[in-house]
């Protein structure tokens, strides 16, 4: 049995099963946004942003969903792939007749699974314990779906591209975690983007997280909050274009830099 859809299905199942068997991954990766909401929510619970009536929690949830895209796709793949390159997983796979796309589909499935788990946990706990408002219309939910899908694609491909620059899982973790943290601080996740220094906004605006967070605010914050944004709009079409461009660029980087074997083994 070697038809492609069936291999995609079985590899994805295997990746998700392995994910669930790794308790650290379940706790730290899948529940991290919930922990962060708990901590920040406890500190800033009563804080309202300007005169919009929007709570910091509501603003923060949009940023956490965007961060979730980075955790589950970018960070997870940026760490898992170098680890699998150094422990021989990739060497075994490339020595087998597995079509290469099977591996990447499996990784994307693992990232998607983690993200869905994170998002459901965050929105359920956020809604019932912190009074987070959920999107009120089908069209907002559809926006949420495409932002998530495009964000996952961009993050996952960037994670795969990033994986080519680390020797093993440990060094990948040391490299990827500060990158994620840097963008969370500069892209309007932990702080309100409009309040950041101009130069910081300009730097962040080149990269995807700012656009994912802003687009998520377009879904989770009331329309009138748009006036508080730097561009006086949530700029969803612009976010789509920029995330699409990053997805393409990352795919090209992967195409030319991805290697199955450690550099000294070819």
């Amino acid at each position: 049995m070697t038809n492609l859809p069936s291999l995609y299905y079985h590899r994805s199942r295997l990746e998700i099963r392995l994910l669930l068997r790794n308790r650290n991954a379940v706790v730290f990766s899948m529940l991290l946004p919930v922990f962060l909401l708990f901590i920040f929510g406890s500190v800033f619970n009563k804080t309202k942003l300007g005169n919009t009536g929007v709570s910091f929690d509501q603003y923060f949830v949009a940023g956490l969903l965007a961060s979730g895209l980075l955790y589950s796709a970018f960070q997870q793949l940026a760490i898992a792939i170098p680890e699998e390159r150094s422990n021989g997983t990739l060497k075994r796979l490339v020595g087998s007749p597995m079509p290469p796309s099977v591996y990447f589909v499996g990784k994307l499935a693992a990232a998607t699974f983690t993200y869905i788990f994170q998002a459901i946990a965050l929105l359920a706990i956020g809604h019932f314990s912190y009074g987070i408002h959920l999107p009120s219309s089908v069209s907002l939910w559809l926006d949420f779906a495409w932002i998530s899908a495009l964000g996952l694609a961009a993050s996952a491909l960037l994670g795969i591209a990033f994986s080519n620059f680390a020797k093993n899982g440990q060094s990948a973790s040391a490299l990827a975690s500060p990158v994620v943290l840097f963008f969370q601080f500069t892209s309007g996740v932990f702080f309100v983007y409009a309040n950041l220094p101009k130069w910081m906004q300009d730097v962040a605006a080149i990269f995807p997280l700012k656009w994912m967070a802003q687009a998520m605010r377009g879904v989770f914050l009331p329309k009138l909050f748009a006036s508080q944004e730097v561009g006086h709009s949530f700029e969803l079409p612009k976010a789509a274009v920029i995330l699409g461009a990053w997805t393409l660029a990352a795919a090209l980087i992967c195409r030319f830099t991805f290697h199955w074997l450690p550099k000294n083994e070819t």
């Binding site: 295997l14 392995l18 068997r21 790794n22 699998e84 422990n87 021989g88 997983t89 060497k91 075994r92 020595g95 087998s96 007749p97």
Partner: peptide, 18 residues
């Protein structure tokens, strides 16, 4: 061609949780 080959590498530490 890969379908006709079997490879047992010198050392492998993958597959751990399977």
């Amino acid at each position: 061609w890969r379908q006709k080959l079997g490879i047992v590498l010198q050392s492998a530490s993958d597959l751990n949780e399977l």
